[in-house]
Design a protein around this nucleic acid. Structure first.
Lengths: 143, 143
DNA sequence: GATGAAACAGCCGAGCT
DNA sequence: AGCTCGGCTGTTTCATC
């Protein structure tokens, strides 16, 4: 992990479909050299994947919300697989504070969100924050 | 936006570096046909970008946290450009509830986080939730 | 890590449905 | 109008230095 690897990471973070040739040009290396570096970055776990970022609004998901959820330690074994299977859950973290879990979710409308919160309350009390606007869209670590 | 476009979106979300040929094979189309479809998806805004997902732990960012921040409406004009420039801020939302803003941040250690919270308090009071563990890593909309 | 060759993928235009 | 097919260009990969 030298400064060239960091440069490659940065470029792939901005455009994951960038060609090896274009990357090579910018780091003053040959394409094969870049190819093996990328393979190594994936292999060693620095790169976890390459993903297309999709406009959720355009896909009909108009409501973004954060749900604080209290889950008792006993119920967590059941909770984890359940929450992973929920397509609308974009992120789920175990956190400090009054509520043990913080979820980020996407729904087409408040109706579906409301129904989901109903389901969640089987695990514990909730506090929901609905997103008005996003000033910094979820982005990777700025290298 | 037909079912083939949705299939292509799904594949690019899973692996943004997938070749046109491999995509074409799966949707029973020719590579050129897939190429124009992807261009259209980008053009029409369904795809907002292609990004490499980087392991933040490996990059030395061991602390993830959510910061609830109260910002008065008057200060928001200053706040937005400032928060965008903060490299450690991964996401920033304007939300309902007691605090007007919810930030997701990454730091190498609690020291840097603490210092950042100090800076933020110029804008208003804060409540910080530190992440113990992440059961659902930030992922795109499940199509 | 560089180079050159071979395989491969992507792009553009022609013809087809 | 949009899709498929073929050839040309550019890209990736492999073997060698």
């Amino acid at each position: 992990m030298d400064h060239i690897d960091r440069e490659i990471l940065k470029m792939l973070q901005e455009n994951a479909r960038m060609s090896l040739k274009d990357i090579a040009k910018q780091v003053f290396l040959s394409s094969p050299a870049v190819s093996v570096r990328i393979d190594n970055l994936v292999e060693s776990g620095y790169i976890e994947g390459f993903h297309a970022q999709i406009n959720t609004e355009k896909m009909g998901y108009h409501i973004k919300a954060f749900i604080n959820l209290e889950v008792s330690p006993v119920d967590k074994k059941d909770f984890y697989p359940y929450i992973k299977s929920c397509k609308n859950v974009v992120e789920c973290n175990c956190v400090t504070g009054d509520y043990s879990m913080l979820l980020e979710v996407l729904f087409p409308s408040t109706d579906e969100l409301d129904q989901f919160i109903g389901e969640l309350q089987e695990y514990g009390r909730t506090k929901t924050l609905i997103v008005f606007s996003t000033s910094v869209e979820h982005r990777g670590l700025q290298i």
